[in-house]
């Protein structure tokens, strides 16, 4: 299953990459793999922008606009402000709400 084409913000700077393999290890969709001692992006449309690769890259070679792929979180952040968050059971403005 793949989501929308050509929207993922994943980028890879091959000059900074040392081929340590951290990104390939943490990616839950095998978007990043190591070939010839460098990371490479197999299929950007499989990227769900979780940010695991970026957080675990010691060389700042991987970049992604990390965020939650959740319509309710995005709509809530439009209405109530704040960063869209997965933490949907957290009380917001004194009102306990639950969505997922």
């Amino acid at each position: 299953m793949k989501y929308l084409a050509n929207v993922a913000t994943l980028t890879l700077n091959k000059d900074k990459c040392t081929g340590c393999g951290n990104c390939a290890e943490v990616c839950p969709h095998a978007v990043l793999e190591i070939q010839d001692k460098k990371a490479f992006i197999t299929d950007p449309d499989r990227c769900m922008e979780c940010g695991a690769c970026q957080t675990n890259c010691p060389f700042e070679a991987v970049g992604v606009d990390k965020g939650v792929g959740c319509a309710a979180a995005l709509i809530n952040s439009m209405i109530y402000g704040g960063e869209p968050s997965c933490d949907c059971s957290a009380p917001q403005e004194g009102k306990a709400k639950s969505c997922c």
Binding site: M1, K2, Y3, L4, M48, D65, G67, G69, A71, L74
Partner: peptide, 9 residues
Amino acid sequence: TTFTGMSGV
């Protein structure tokens, strides 16, 4: 889901 990203949504 386990595969939708923020840019897509």
